[in-house]
Design a protein around this nucleic acid. Structure first.
Lengths: 258, 258
DNA sequence: GATGATATGATTGTATACGATTAGGCAATT
DNA sequence: AATTGCCTAATCGTATACAATCATATCATC
């Protein structure tokens, strides 16, 4: 970590939780105020680590020194360690007592495992969403809007924004299951995948990806369980295969190198 | 928390990780030494909270005061808080900044959600296990042995031991997928369900439960994907329906009452 | 009586200080 | 040369001390 992590400041006041476009499945607009929680140093630390990892300031498998990062972020080691515990429990970091903390090691095998777990969660979520009839206009509109965002980002060649919209698409699909447990597990996977892939979305296949998402929506509207399951599985596996994993890693190393 | 949590002492030395019967899918016996990690205060705290919750010393939704529990376990608040962060990230606790820590609130709705997520993970795991041919003698033997344990515990009327064997059965089934990510997510669910149901397994249906597991093994051996998926889903849902949820809660309150 | 301001105690969030463990170098020994 | 023991620096784990926040009670005001 040679570069400064200029992440922390961000106002010490109160803000809302990590937002995304829409609200929950049924809840109208109630929580907009009740969800306003104080942001502690731990939250900042968590955000900083995630962002630092996604931006390649910390590479997979690399060691993180508590005191160093703490002082860099302008806090003491105590909240730092609490952030570590949270992220370790989510699979982002590994803690070895008295040895140190490392960013999760990344192999193509592990990516496959994460994607496989994703398939498990997303297919179940879609199935449950359908069985609850959560594929009506209200939900579909959200998905179409996100595809619009993806198209916008594609024309702008904004790989980061594109990836975020893609993530949001799937996040909402999972939410339509109405099962927060599924959502929470999914978020943990999404976090790890975000860190692994970072900003490195390959622009040439954006059109293809958009097409796949429109197909997903169409199938979801139709409401055939096995069909959406197969479509989702194929979609996720395609994503894995289309990413040149070794290139992502080597790009990272180069970008950070000297 | 009126009663003493006499959980902590347990020697300060080094022990191995939380054990279960067998090893991983492929790994032989290599890690028996390399896996020996130092046990820190945080580990003790985590164990104590889980055990205290499973034994009903802390009830769902109930508040936990850091300093109180810390002194009870003979440690300072710092490792205590790290344990809280870990468990909160696994859904066992809820943290509200400056307000306090609570054991997860429990409703029958949440149990359904947990079980639903379990179905997602276990059916996928079984599917993957089959596709990798991990339903050979070596794996099946493990499952049969666990059914034997269940029978032994049933004759002994040892509800706790029975529940543990049941859990181990499913744990191994998930492991046979060879996907540690699935396993990790599953452990998080198992932890929450353990805390919710605690020791309160109802003895009258033990025989029925054993029969269900033998059926599961048979179907697993046969290797038909959709069949094992359906069987697993039914099995898990039956478990949910057979448990008198309100009774579990009220028993807890009574047992702790005065 | 309802409302609002203010003080007080309990509890959480954070910083600092100290003890414990590891990793690596170097010399002594075999 | 390989092994062993000991030393030191770096880093982690834990305890303690202090600051920030919340909840409640008390009181004044209308």
């Amino acid at each position: 970590m040679d570069e400064l992590l200029t992440v922390a400041p961000k106002k010490a006041g109160r803000e809302r939780k990590t937002g995304s476009v829409g609200n929950a499945v049924d809840e109208p607009f109630v929580d907009a105020w009740t969800n306003v929680k104080p942001r502690t140093m731990v939250d900042h630390a968590i955000d900083a680590i995630i962002e630092g990892a996604a931006r390649g300031l910390i590479l997979p498998g690399e060691r993180i020194v508590e005191s160093e990062l703490a002082s860099r972020l302008g806090m003491s080691r105590v909240p730092m360690r609490e952030a570590f515990r949270t992220l370790a429990s989510q699979g982002v970091l590994t803690i070895e007592p008295y040895k140190g903390i490392r960013l999760m090691p990344v192999t193509s095998e592990r990516v496959d495992q994460l994607q496989d777990a994703r398939i498990a969660l997303e297919t179940r979520a879609a199935t449950q969403a359908l069985s609850k009839g959560n594929n009506q206009k209200r939900q579909i509109d959200v998905l179409w809007r996100l595809v619009d965002v993806m198209e916008l980002m594609a024309t702008r060649q904004d790989a980061y924004g594109f990836a975020m919209a893609d993530t949001d698409f799937h996040r909402h699909l999972v939410r339509f299951s109405g099962n927060p447990v599924l959502s929470q597990l999914w978020e943990s996977l999404a976090l790890q995948l975000t860190i692994i892939f970072g900003l490195s979305t390959l622009d040439k296949t954006m059109k293809k990806i958009i097409k796949e998402h429109t197909k997903l929506i169409e199938v979801f509207v139709r409401g055939e369980v096995t069909e959406i399951q197969d479509e989702l599985e194929d979609h996720i596996l395609r994503q894995t295969h289309e990413i040149d994993f070794e290139r992502v890693i080597s790009d990272r190393r180069k970008a950070k190198g000297p």
